[in-house]
Computed example of a mutant assay.
Amino acid sequence: MQSLGISAFLVILIGVFSSLSPAFISSGNAIGILTGISFIGLVALGQTLVIIAGGFDLSVAGVAPLAAVVFAELVNTGTSVLLSILGAVLVGVLVGVINGVIVTKGKINPLITTLGMLSISGGLAFTLAEGQSIPIANLTAGFLADTDIGLVPNQVWLTGSAFVAITVVLRFTTYGRSLYALGGNREASWLAGMRVDAITISVYAFSGTLAAVGGVILASQLLAGDGNLGTTAALLSVAAVVLGGGSLKGGSGGALGTLAGVLVLGVLANGLTLLHVSAFYQQIVTGVVLLAAVGLSNLRTQVTASS
């Protein structure tokens, strides 16, 4: 029901901005919106898996800039673009695995764990970049921003493919069903014989991987690595998941709902920009939307429990 609600809200937003700004309904602007949400879409997908399983990942806001810096550094040392992407992604996997191990074996709250890793990974990004932006000299590193298929940038196709893949995993695989079971009742899942720790570590690894790919997208788009890239990823990814029907208590959510949430955030940002609304006010609107989404999620949970 909440996914349907956010879809209806998305339609209303599109109608409002279309009436206020004729430029909003142009094909170029539509492609611009899809391009703009590519990064946060990937990060939100990883966040979806973690939240469904009953966790939380703030470290994505540090993994993304760290991956962007690593990608830029590797490309500038003469490493091939493909191997540079692999190196950046491996950094994300490593951070994700460390998060999962600390949460499962160290029994430390996911919020505290990932907040600490956010500080560490973000600090490493600034350290490697020496506090500066790192221009990428190899122009082929910008291939994700190219339009090889139609007028749509490669990064949009990549993000769309990821959404399709995660949708299939969550709906039609044993692994996907186990995430919902784990988020719904961790103890019952353990008693049922599920490998609770391994599954938990895997979702944090996936989250780190997708955040790292998102960081590579930003670096490819800007042809630069910077410790300031993607630092709002934690807030926006959680907002997208909750807007799309995910619960911070775990056990609910999905890729399509998250996609609707990401689109709402993207349309909001784009529409407000076209209306020349200050970026500071845009942050306020995003915060209000997040609070409203969490409130609706809690209300939905209470109604479900009472019925």
Rank of each mutant, 00 (worst) to 15 (best):
Q155W: 00
Q155K: 14
V156W: 12
W157Q: 01
W157S: 00
G160Q: 07
S161D: 06
A162Y: 09
F163A: 02
F163H: 06
F163Q: 07
F163E: 11
F163W: 05
F163V: 06
V164N: 09
V164S: 02
A165Q: 02
A165S: 11
I166G: 04
T167F: 09
T167D: 13
V168R: 03
V168A: 14
V168N: 01
V169G: 07
L170K: 12
L170R: 09
L170W: 06
R171S: 14
T173N: 09
T173R: 10
T173C: 06
T174F: 15
T174H: 11
Y175M: 14
G176L: 12
G176D: 12
G176N: 13
S178P: 00
S178I: 00
S178A: 13
L179G: 04
Y180H: 05
A181V: 02
A181D: 04
A181N: 07
L182W: 03
L182R: 01
G183I: 05
G183R: 10
G184M: 12
G184C: 10
N185D: 15
N185G: 04
N185T: 04
N185K: 07
R186W: 01
E187T: 10
A188Q: 08
S189L: 04
S189G: 00
S189D: 05
W190C: 01
L191H: 14
L191S: 11
L191R: 15
A192L: 14
A192I: 00
G193K: 08
G193L: 07
R195I: 05
V196S: 04
V196C: 11
V196E: 03
V196W: 11
V196T: 12
D197F: 06
D197N: 14
A198G: 05
I199E: 12
T200L: 11
T200M: 10
I201V: 15
V203R: 03
V203T: 00
A205T: 05
A205C: 06
A205H: 07
